[in-house]
């Protein structure tokens, strides 16, 4: 196993390497969460709209 302290230190570039990975993870994570949430809320709106629809059996 490599030494954890040396791994975290990234050869003196810890601040740069870890912040680059953190920003990437943050943006991608927020994008995934926002996309999944939007889909969930839109699907429940769709269920509502389909139930309210005059055509009883949509599709």
């Amino acid at each position: 196993m490599p030494d954890l302290g040396a791994f975290l230190a990234m050869g003196g570039y810890a601040g740069y390497v870890w912040s680059a990975y953190a920003i990437t993870a943050l943006i991608l994570g927020l994008l995934v969460v926002a996309s999944l949430r939007a889909r969930r809320s839109m699907r429940s709106s769709l269920d509502e709209a389909e139930q309210a629809s005059p055509r009883r059996r949509a599709r």
Partner: peptide
Amino acid sequence: IRMQTELARRRVMALRRAA
């Protein structure tokens, strides 16, 4: 994921318009 959302949104709009 976003295309599923957008297609659902278009369907909601169509249903509301029909209603």
